[in-house]
Structures are given as structure tokens and as C-alpha cells.
Design a protein around this nucleic acid. Structure first.
Lengths: 214, 214
DNA sequence: TTCCTCGGATACCGGCACTATCTAAGCACG
DNA sequence: CGTGCTTAGATAGTGCCGGTATCCGAGGAA
């Protein structure tokens, strides 16, 4: 199929598809001649993933490019590839390590991981961008005056671990080996909006139960 | 205190504070004369909240303004005020109701809410922006080929309900009546980055347990 | 031949969150 | 009183991001 057809099938404008091609989010089509390129089902699929990442998952275009590059990198094993892809996702600005709230937050997060026995997370704690995001968020809460400590976080962490177990179960039952990495990326990025919405809905529901209709 | 002092205490540049004053995120100081305004502890506190909402919670400036306006609106009761504040938070673009993925997603979400007995959520479903976000996210997953249905979501929803119960418990024990609305807003916005990070960490941890070190 | 469409390259746009510059008023000190 | 520094407030500009719009020359179809 050609560009116009790809656009029609995916609901993305040709101008935007060209932009994604330029940015390397979408592999170029098979060049037929100087003015024609041929795209296939794989392009449609990839394009849907790109749109989902950017629009629903709110991943910046540059980060999405990184992530997809890792997904495609056949030189690496599956596990590494997945790790690398997820690694590329968040990029909060580095916290100010002078800030006492940040120092305390880091200590509390480390204490939490020890409490839970999440040794992998602790070992990677110096590097992992996710770990950093957690520190930043906890520091923000503490700066607002909330004593958000390891004891408070632990039950949340255990609940999120149950969520993670379900995520991986889903992955194992719903994705073939070949598409495991792509599915994992989709899951990591797209389960989050679902979780967030369920969280808010649950807050509304529980609040209505306790205090009456909003 | 004057602008420079407020800036020093909060770590926010005077230019940015002026910007927030212009945008109505921060109430104006008490005007002493034509070239001096006096700020107080309340301004410091509010400024910290604003920064947390915008930088950590990723709330757009315009939305933060809406939210804070509701928090401050003394003409409403507490519950209404909180509801209105949270209502102003997300603003995903409306989904295309023609899209079959959206139609199915909406049906599955409704089925989920019936399964769970979340009647409040169902009643508000036509209006609630959160409900809409959920539909959008589910539609995106379905478009990618995942059969994300009510049965799959229910366990996630129950886990998030447990999270919501903890949120409200926290609210009841850690906030006085007066600051309940502000705390609720902070909780809704700032617990999310914490949850997200815990979710990712849990995924990494569980993945390492199942498949070995990343 | 004529005309439409394609791909590719380049320039441009609108929104957002700031940031820099300017102005005139106030106060402090000699 | 005058000089110089700071302040609040207004206005204009900046950099980035996610696209759009325009232009061009090559193909292909009637």
C-alpha cells in the first residue's frame, strides 16, 4: 500500500506520517521508484502503536523513538531489549540533591525497598530513572508537609506488586514470544492510563460511599 | 515579606512568581503602596502546591488555575468543592464515538462498573472526565489488538479500590477539616506519580524474579 | 500530451511555560 | 535634595514540541 492508503487505514494524516518517518518512529517503506514507496501491515501496526504511545501514553516523540529503537534491536536478547526500552521511557529532570526533602525522600525509598525485599530495585537504584521519579514524587509530598515515609508506602507498593504480577501474567498468556517485547512496552505505557482512571474512579466511588454523593 | 523573599523561600524565580500572579495561580499580595506588595506564609504554601501540581503532577498551568479556584471557593461545601476541583483536572480530547473500538470500550467499561457495583461511577459516566479517559485508554488497547474487557479489568479495579481506601484513610488521619480539600487535591495529583513509579519498580522486580536479572 | 498524484525536503505554525526587558515609583543615604 | 538601588507591574520575546503547509520534480493513467 502507499502513503495515502496507510493514512486511510490508520486515521493519521499523511503529513503526520511523513513527520514520523522523518523522526524515525516509523521505518521507511520499500522504495518502488523515485516517487513511490510500498508500506505493509507491519507499518499499520507500528503506526497504531506510535499513536497510542504518543497520544494515550503521553510519551514524547523523541522518547518514543528511543523506545521503539530498542524494541527493534535484534542484536540484544529479549529481556535486555525490554529493559532498555522501558529504561528510555521517563525522563524527569534530575532532583536537586542538596534539597533536604530529596535527601530524606531517597532514604525513605531505600528503606522501603529493603522492607519489601526488592533487591533488584535496590541494586539498580543509583541508575534507574523510575527510582529517580519515585524520589522526586516523594520529595514533593514531603515538601508540602506530608510525612510520606516507607511505612506509609509499603502497603501501596504491595498492591502495585499485585498489579505487576497481573501485568506479567497477561503478557505471558496474551503475547507470543516474538511480540513479547512490543506487548510489554504497550502494557507498560498503556496500562498506566487505565490504572490512573480506575484509581480516580475508585476514589470517587469510595468518597461517595463514605461522605455521600458528590 | 516581599517578592524577592518569597522567591528565596520557595526556590522559584521572581519572574516565574510574577507569571503565576498574572495567571491567577497565586493570589496577589497585600498592596502596601504603588511599588510594594506584602506576601505571607500562605503564599509560600500555595506556591509550593502550585509547583508540585505543575512540575510533579504535570498539571497544565491553566488546569491548575481551575483546580485552585475551586479549592478556594468558600461558597461551596467541602464535598462539592473537592469534586469540582478534581473534575477540572484531566482534559483528554473527546474520543471519536464513531470508532468501533471506542464503542466497545464504552460498553466494556459500563459492564465493569456494573460488575463491581460502582453505581456512583455509572451514574456519572456520561459526564465524568475520568470515565472518558478510561474509555479512551481501553479503546487504544483494543485498537492494538488486545481483548481488554471487563473481566480483565475487574481485578485491577478491585486493587485500585484498595488503593483508594488507603488514600481516603490517609486523608482522614492526616488533614484537618480546614485543609481537607487542599490535601485531597494534593493526594489525587501527587499520589499518582508515586503509584506510577511503584508500579514500574514492581514490574522490574517481578520481571527479574521470573526471568532473571534484567 | 496533459493532468493528477506521489514522495521527499523545507519552512512554517500555534500552544505552552517561562524569561527578559522596560518603566516608573519608592526608600535609603550622604 | 539628589543619586542610586530595589520593587511591582506591563509587555514582548524565547525555546521547545508536535505537528502542518507548501513546494518541487518524478511517475503513471487517459
Amino acid at each position: 500500500m502507499r502513503l495515502a492508503e496507510l493514512s486511510r487505514l490508520s486515521g493519521v494524516s499523511t503529513a503526520t506520517i511523513k513527520y514520523y518517518l522523518r523522526e524515525g518512529l516509523l521505518p521507511p517503506g520499500r522504495q518502488v521508484n523515485a516517487t513511490t514507496a510500498e508500506y505493509d501491515e507491519g507499518h499499520v501496526r507500528r503506526l497504531r502503536l506510535v499513536r497510542a504511545l504518543i497520544q494515550v501514553g503521553r510519551v514524547p516523540v523523541a522518547a518514543a523513538k528511543e523506545v521503539l529503537a530498542h524494541v527493534d534491536d535484534d542484536s540484544l536478547g529479549r529481556t535486555i531489549r525490554l529493559g532498555a526500552a522501558l529504561w528510555a521511557l521517563p525522563q524527569d529532570p534530575a532532583p536537586d540533591e542538596e534539597d533536604p526533602a530529596v535527601v530524606t525522600a531517597r532514604a525513605e525509598v531505600d528503606r522501603l525497598l529493603r522492607m519489601l525485599g526488592w533487591e533488584t530495585a535496590r541494586e539498580l537504584s543509583v541508575l534507574s530513572p523510575v527510582h529517580r521519579s519515585l524520589v522526586v514524587a516523594v520529595a514533593a509530598l514531603r515538601r508540602l508537609g506530608y510525612d510520606w515515609d516507607a511505612e506509609l508506602m509499603a502497603p501501596y507498593a504491595r498492591l502495585m506488586h499485585q498489579v505487576a504480577e497481573r501485568d506479567l501474567d497477561f503478557l505471558e498468556t496474551h503475547a507470543s514470544e516474538a511480540e513479547r517485547v512490543e506487548t510489554a512496552v504497550a502494557a507498560a505505557v498503556l496500562f498506566e492510563p487505565v490504572l490512573r482512571a480506575l484509581h480516580r474512579l475508585a476514589q470517587e466511588e469510595e468518597s461517595a460511599r463514605r461522605y455521600g454523593i458528590v
